[in-house]
Design a protein around this nucleic acid. Structure first.
Lengths: 338, 338
DNA sequence: ATGAAAGCGCTAACAA
DNA sequence: TTGTTAGCGCTTTCAT
């Protein structure tokens, strides 16, 4: 069972291997006559020849392979992958998926270095900073792009969401409805320290309130703290504030539980209480009743952008068209909940 | 900027390249003295050396890379990937993610052959048959495992769900509740022909009815046909059959719309109407209110199994412990809807 | 037990 | 324009 090589193709086409290579790669500065070119292509087809990417990679020093790193448990990762895939197809890159966040860094590094990866894209947590992925990957000399992470590390290229704008837009939308009474609900993990996104969102809320002469009301609730949510919903629905109580939630993860609590309290979301999420994806909420109004985070596009950014890094474009920090905007997806 | 090679390591450790290689691969039948081995390991650490997988692959003929093929739009694919990833880590394989189903086969084949992939795992549609992925991949000589596809192609290795059992178990569970009245609702795409899974499920329903002396009632509805669903729910809820109307749905995709229709009709699922899905995943339904009772399909494990099956194929185990067709069982996840 | 040397399949620099 | 050749970094005989 012999592999067919470029030598076989050359022989069959009656040319030398370099000609075959030239035809395959459109090597600049080297012309091949029409007939020879045809002959080569013909031979390739007949022999069903396929370049060995490893061999060519060894010569050129490029593997045309980028690594996508993220948590396969996270549904958003799939959307990012979709974007990465789309852009990679365009550039001719292949995607290597290996290593989840549970794996230790040196093991992972070994993976990547063995494969001579051209670049790394990583979907990070908002508060990802330490571990020094970025610093590490710089050590390796592998171009690196973070999605949602390292917002405050000026040397790391990252794709970030403009959460300020997201909150601002959400509030503006909610405000269209007469007599609403916007409350900002911050859900957070107990152990997490406040991150940049959280700060941005809160700041945007306060700014908006000031500009619109509203009294800011902020509630902080620990994720999954059902009693606290019950209390909140009960409270706002019986409050004597003027207007319909209208909640802007910082983090989509908490929303299902809010729906459940409302369901159990027989509160109708979208009528008794209005609800909007400032951080979510449309796809994630298609099954919700009523449909949740969300600021949709474009994870697919962020994946695409990451590849473009990586590509610029890899080719060391002299006049980079892309900044170190790339900001994308969430898009309002009106639902029935507000 | 020079790459560090096994030669550098050898030089530093004061041995030859073959020794380095032997240490790295535990080459059987070739012993290395304790000191030399230590020296090599030391040098590797000092120089931060990493084998070039391409070069070693060229010699050994293995790429230690398997391709995962599936639709990145499908959330289930992520679960499969999770399983694949887990098993791959175990075997030391890397995962190549390239090509979505929209890409044409020859292009894809080119990808795989260029990379000298060791095997392919594909998450297929239940009715996947034509296109001859399998036959094709056999032509390429690349081991292939299908998840959910090619159930009726005896030569293709595939991981399949025992849907008969799934339906049977669901019905048994539903029947625990007194006086239920089980109706089987088949949702289907208009253009799709009936597939093996559909046949199995229906057969299981009929068998169960016979064994339990129930009158089988089957409804067929086109996916997304909202009026038909409305009619169905209205109908069964006002029927004068004895017992609570209890629906077993064949396909989870239709469930959100059923919930919506019920919501609009002010029918309380779990009280006025009982609902169970015979084909679903728990993860997909966490946000539903009330929580849907489902037969949970273990996609993660199916991914793992696929890798194991692939591994056996690749190593051409003489006494294969795995059959060509591997059947897995769905697990009942009781919810509040039935 | 260890070292020398022959490739694996390819590209790029050079020679013709 | 075309063909020759020297590696890329590794594994694996084959001698030593």
């Amino acid at each position: 069972m012999k592999r067919v090589t470029s030598f076989d193709v050359a022989k069959r086409a009656g040319v030398s291997r370099s000609v075959v290579s030239a035809v395959l790669n459109d090597t600049p500065g080297i012309g091949v006559s029409k007939e020879k070119r045809e002959a080569v292509l013909e031979a390739i087809r007949e022999l069903n020849y396929h370049v060995d990417a490893r061999a060519s990679g060894m010569k050129t020093g490029k593997s045309f392979c980028i690594a996508a790193f993220g948590n396969t448990r996270n549904p958003l990762f799939l959307q990012v992958l979709e974007g990465i895939q789309r852009a990679c197809t365009e550039y001719g890159y292949h995607i290597l998926l290996s290593g989840d966040p549970s794996m230790d860094l040196s093991k992972l590094a070994d993976f990547y270095l063995q494969r001579r990866i051209d670049g790394i894209i990583s979907l990070d947590a908002l508060n990802a900073v330490d571990e020094g992925w970025a610093t590490q990957s710089n050590q390796f000399g592998i171009p690196f792009v973070s999605i949602e992470g390292y917002a405050e590390q000026p040397e790391v290229v990252s794709i970030l969401v403009d959460y300020k704008r997201s909150v601002y837009q959400a509030l503006t939308y909610m405000n269209k409805r007469e007599g609403i009474h916007p409350i900002y609900v911050i859900f957070r993990n107990e152990q997490d320290i406040e991150n940049w996104a959280e700060r941005d969102r809160k700041e945007a809320y306060l700014t908006w309130c000031e500009q619109n002469a509203r009294n800011p009301i902020v509630r902080v609730i620990t994720l999954d703290d059902e009693p606290a949510i019950t209390e909140l919903l009960k409270g706002v629905s019986t409050d004597t504030y003027e207007g319909v109580p209208s909640l802007l939630v910082n983090w989509s993860v908490a929303v299902p539980l809010m729906y459940r609590v409302a369901y159990e309290l027989h509160l109708r979301i979208g009528e008794d209480i209005l609800l909007t999420s400032a951080d979510n994806t449309k796809r994630n909420n298609q099954a919700m009743l009523p449909i949740l109004t969300v600021m949709d985070i474009p994870y697919v596009r962020m994946g695409e952008l990451a590849v473009h950014a990586l590509n610029e890094q890899m080719n060391e474009v002299k006049a980079p068209s892309m900044a170190i920090k790339l900001w994308v905007e969430a898009e309002l997806q009106p639902g029935e909940s507000s």
